Simulated scan of single mutants.
Amino acid sequence: MDRHSYVMAQHKCSSVPCPNDPETKNLTSISEFFLMGLSDDPELQPLLFGLFLSMYLVTVFGNLLIILAVSSDPRLHTPMYFFLSNLSLADIGFTSTTVPKMIVDTHTHLRAISYAACLTQMSFFILFGCLDSLLLAVMAYDRFLAICHPLHYTVIMNPKLCGTLVVMSLFISLVVSQMHNSIVVQLTYFKDVEISHFFCDPSQLLNLACSDPVTNNIVMYFIGVISGFIPISGILFSYYKIVSSVLRVPSGGGRSKAFSTCGSHLSVVCLFYGTGLGVYLSSAVSVSPRNDAMASVVYTVVTPMLNPFIYSLRNRDIKRAMQRLFSKRI
């Protein structure tokens, strides 16, 4: 028996039925889970390892480059780029929560994860995912003030308010993450130990738990409202006001300039929420958990990787800052 088969057998033996099963006797709690990953084909493992390692390095390097460019250039010490650097930092944390574990599992072929490590991964996944969403809403509010109230923008969006908005976003994300973690930590018995994903997906783990599904649905809806519905509502309201204000501008050049300042942020918003909504809809209609895992790659890996390219390619200030940064290094 090879190492992969041995681990599978060990986890199969540790699966326990739910306590409300009348045939259950001598129940034991689960201490480990088994992440199924994207594929069991041994020939695909080197390809997946190289692909995800490359994407992870590009994501970290690209977002770090944005942070360095913003911090090193005094011209970019504005609220918009302050929020952008925090978004890049959140993207690094978001992708670092899931991808390194997947890379190691693909290389070692041992996909076991302890119960404590699974809870920790879920906690950070919700933390950085919610932080990403809230920061995008804060950036939309910043663009709303800059376009709709330009005369009062510097007074309203002062450094104190910028820092407060970031700290509040982090605090709300931390509260949501810990509330979910406090509920999941009470779950001891599970229907199975195999998670059909490459990370500890919160929804899949709750579906495997031997608990009331109504409670699980309430938890997931609560997280969805805080991290999804409220931020996207704020973004839509901000852009509704922006579009209404820009359409009243008489000159076409003024409209183009106003919309160009929102282009990068709007592209990231569409990519982030579009892929997240696509994963949610695909999981609702798909009968294959493996397909859901493949769709989640776009949301958890591709989106954080593309964000630096979107801002660097569509933003002349960022491109000039990067050029000055590289010229100093050279």
Rank of each mutant, 00 (worst) to 15 (best):
K25Q: 13
L206F: 10
P250Y: 07
Y6N: 09
D201V: 06
H149I: 01
V297S: 06
R143E: 10
G252C: 09
S256R: 15
A146W: 01
S29Q: 13
T59K: 03
S251N: 11
I310H: 03
G163C: 06
I330S: 09
N158D: 10
A112N: 07
H265F: 10
R143T: 09
V185I: 05
R3C: 07
D317C: 12
M1Q: 03
I310C: 08
T120C: 03
V287G: 11
T188V: 07
V246Y: 04
I230K: 01
L27P: 07
H152V: 10
V301L: 05
S264D: 12
P213Q: 07
K257H: 11
C18K: 13
I235E: 05
Y221Q: 10
S233P: 00
K160T: 15
V7N: 09
S123L: 05
H11W: 04
H152F: 07
R290K: 08
N216E: 07
G274F: 04
Y239H: 14
V138G: 01
N217W: 03
L247D: 12
M1F: 06
C270I: 12
L64Y: 11
H180Q: 13
Y141T: 09
F82R: 04
V16P: 00
V268S: 14
L84V: 05
A116Y: 14
I242S: 07
C130S: 15
D21N: 15
S233Y: 09
S85N: 00
L47G: 00
S88V: 12
I183S: 06
T164K: 13
D132E: 15
L151A: 12
V279K: 03
A295P: 00
V70C: 02
A295S: 13
A140D: 02
P22I: 10
Y280L: 15
G62K: 05
P231L: 03
Q323F: 11
T275F: 05
I113H: 05
L145Y: 08
M122V: 11
E43A: 14
D2C: 05
T98L: 06
F309P: 02
N86G: 01
R143A: 13
Y273F: 11
D212P: 01
S96V: 08
H4W: 05
K25P: 01
I195G: 01
S71A: 11
I156G: 00
V225S: 05
D105R: 11
S54E: 00
M139I: 04
R3T: 15
P231T: 06
T275L: 09
L271D: 10
D73W: 02
P79L: 12
I223M: 05
Q10N: 07
L64D: 00
G278Y: 02
S312Y: 11
I235K: 04
A112Q: 08
C200E: 02
D41L: 09
Q10H: 06
I126C: 04
